[in-house]
Amino acid sequence: MSGLQDVGVPRRNGELAFDAPWQPRAFGMAASLVETRFDRDWEPFRTRLIAAVAADQDRPYWESWAVALEDLLLAHGLLAAEDLQSL
């Protein structure tokens, strides 16, 4: 069982570091799914996030977050590949 503190969300001087309005939306979507679909366990998302960051280390953090979110939805059958292609 992982909590948010295990996810390594970037912080700036102690606060969650968001630079654009879409970033807290992406954060909130992941937090919502963790809450409602993963029994508050951040671990499934965390492993996707680690993979997304590793896959492209130059990619901005929250963009990797968004990729991890899509990967999670796909891997757990919550969305289909066609759904993601239509975005």
């Binding site: 992406a26 979507m29 919502s32 409602t36 968004a66 759904d83 975005l87």
Partner: peptide
């Protein structure tokens, strides 16, 4: 893309309206 994803999740009921 993130906005479209949120719309999709909301439409599908995967994220309750207002939950984010």
């Amino acid at each position: 893309r993130v906005a479209a994803l949120e719309q999709l999740l909301t439409d599908r009921g995967l994220v309750p309206p207002g939950f984010v």
